[in-house]
Design a protein around this nucleic acid. Structure first.
Lengths: 227, 227
DNA sequence: TAAAATCATTAGACAAGTCTAATATTTCTC
DNA sequence: GAGAAATATTAGACTTGTCTAATGATTTTA
């Protein structure tokens, strides 16, 4: 799974995922237009991605993402979104600029930086007083995603009784805030209490109290196992 | 002066400037060791930099930065420092990581983003209440370094009576805070009142009141002319 | 359904940036 | 100052990612 992939190929993969999502299928020309390159460049990128098992590709047939490709694309798009939200929501760049900068930077920063930027955006949006914000940054940032850290997984995959630290929450500033209202912010410690038999709701313990959360929402919360 | 330079060459130039500053002269081997590349790579980079007029280079002689090269290096190092401070001071990465991330990102972000990150770091460090911080971000960020903007220049080059917006302040969080105590933060409007004949002090007007500042310090404050 | 238009791929050139191996230069040491 | 060691450069290969020009495939249209 150590798909070590260049910035350029990351960009192709991300674009392909976006086009497929928008139109159902990605053609060479669409990709070329979107990335402002010529078609032969796309063809050779596709061959390269296929060689790495990230897409299924046959001549003249539409591109399909493999499972691994879809996963990689999701990670990249998550980084992109988090960065764009930061540049737009916090640094107040306009949408186009924020997107452009995110697109350049997304291939060079790791999950740790992303988590912390999200945490920062969230904290700035939520904190009552700036002294508290500073203290929050001092205390929380160092605990988010330390070193190699345990594997990251979505909250809904946590098993009963397991404890975890919240790493990343949602994909939009709006989503982040919604979760923050429940106390689910990057850095928070929580424990899975159990799940309803028919799958709709999860019950988690957070700072002493219990709360329920929809499984579908929980899938957007990334946590790391502790202890 | 449109020295359009690749990320790789920017890195070489930056490293050369650092080595010269630290040891007085930069040898091929020092550069190679620092950048973890082999010596022939350095040689060809040097030839390339020389071709662009950024360094003076003759075989087997120590590298010397040209005026234009020194200026470019200073810009890059300023970006690097600002980013490192942000990653370390705000996101609380450890020093080595902050430096590494800064080194990757510094070639991809423009002055606007840098200004805003500095402004953010400064604001987080100084604001009394978080509501005020949000308001500050809303009001200030959009005014910093809009679009192509006028030329940026150091505060000490402002002529009497000229007005300007502060873009970037100092190079360290410490420096930023010192200036912030005087009200000199990115986004602030100021006017040059005059300078002492023998050069030591500058007098500037800021938010109604006057204050004096050492010319040497003023050189570390970047402003953009308004109106 | 045949010609035209569009789309896609192959072939081959080119630039940037790295490397290894070989050669040249400078510096150190006795 | 001559040989050894360290440093620097050249030559040439290789990779990645782009391009143009030419060819092949598919779709549209008359």
């Amino acid at each position: 799974m150590k798909t070590d992939i260049s910035a350029s190929l990351e960009n192709y993969l991300e674009t392909i995922a976006e086009i497929i999502e928008a139109k159902g299928h990605a053609h060479t020309k669409d990709i070329a237009d979107r990335l402002k390159v010529k078609m032969p460049s796309v063809t050779s990128a596709l061959q390269s991605l296929a060689g790495r098992g990230l897409i299924n590709y046959e001549s003249h047939a539409p591109v399909v993402l493999t499972a691994s490709g879809a996963e990689t694309a999701a990670v990249i798009r998550n980084r992109h979104t988090a960065l764009r939200n930061f540049f737009q929501g916090v640094l107040k760049l306009d949408a186009a600029d924020a997107d452009a900068v995110a697109c350049r930077v997304e291939h060079l920063v790791d999950e740790r930086v992303i988590s912390r930027l999200v945490a920062l955006a969230c904290a700035i949006g939520e904190r009552e007083d700036a002294a508290g914000l500073r203290e929050y940054l001092d205390n929380t940032m160092p605990t988010i995603c330390t070193e190699a850290a345990g594997r990251m997984l979505p909250l809904d995959e946590l098993r009963d009784g397991e404890q975890a630290v919240v790493l990343r929450v949602g994909e939009t500033l709006r989503g982040v805030k919604r979760f923050a209202d429940l106390g689910i912010v990057p850095g928070a410690l929580l424990e899975m209490e159990g799940r309803a038999p028919l799958g709709g709701l999860l019950r988690i313990k957070l700072m002493g109290s219990s709360l329920s959360i929809r499984r579908r929402d929980a899938a957007h919360i990334r946590v790391r196992l502790t202890g």
